[in-house]
Amino acid sequence: MAHPDTTYERQHPAFYAVIFTLVFMSVGPIALMFINSFKLDVDIISGTTGLLFLPTIQNYETALCDILPYELDHLDYCSLKFGGAFINSIIITLISTVLTLIIGCMAAYALVRFRFMGRDTVSGTTLMVRMVPPAVLLVPVFGLWNNEFCIGRETWVGEIIRDTFGGRGDVCLAGTHSGIILVYIAMNLPFVIWILQSFIVQVPRQLEEAARMDGAGSFQVFFKVVLPLIKPGLAAAAIFTFRIAWNEYLLASALSDRDTKTVPILIVNNMSEFNVEWGVIMATGMLLAIPPIIFTLFASRQIITGMTAGAVKG
């Protein structure tokens, strides 16, 4: 952190020009999407690149039309179904992030603080599965979630679920929120465990031992002493897990059905149509981009810490 009375070096004007160009290049495209999301398709297509247009929130209204409380007069019917997808995205992301963090920090703690049989195997496997790409998981997960991880409709659990939610055939993981959440947790765990290990190592052992002397059990030590001390690590891990779950497209598209679609699926589906409605899609894209952008603006330090801790061996 820069100290208040640190003197900053003065730089050559050309240096500032370079910096300005870099910022423009990295933020420009996002700003362009932001601006275009307030334009009507006519304005986008006619190519008024400048800022001379009449801003409108019509695109956002169209995107959110199925959860808006009022009728829209520029639409006959809602075709985008953004609202439902938005809610699905929130449910899936929040639940999977919270669970990943809880499960992940417990596992990281066990790996750092205990010597036990199989420890090296577990930590080695965790390291290796970090490189498995979602595209590779797609094939088996698609098969398993659709055909194997099912509850037969004749069994009593299956019957209850069928009676409550309707539908026909067996009850399978595919097409449910839990199915997607399960994959996301598994996908994020290795990374979270790896990052948190490097934070837990730094917790002074004496603190834990002092707590233990005072009669605290292992779980109390973990929840009352260790967890509060690794808050920065937890924040970093939370942001990364959130980002992956919120942004993920491939597995969600293979595992969701009409009712459990997430926002990225909606965007891809609407991009592959012949007539792309640019304004509405950019508004949708903007809504999808806002949470990560907010995180970046308010927690960039945690993100950078997380990135360096994740890359450099912890």
Binding site: L22, V23, S26, V27, P29, I30, L32, M33, R243, W246, N247, Y249, P264, I267, V268, M271, I281, M282, G285, L288, A289, P292, I293, F295, T296, L297, S300, I303, I304
Partner: peptide, 17 residues
């Protein structure tokens, strides 16, 4: 902060832009 924005937003949105 400005520089890390592009990698925080969804790949789908990057593709769209």
């Amino acid at each position: 902060t400005m520089f890390i924005l592009p990698m925080m937003i969804a790949p789908v949105v990057v593709g769209l832009i």
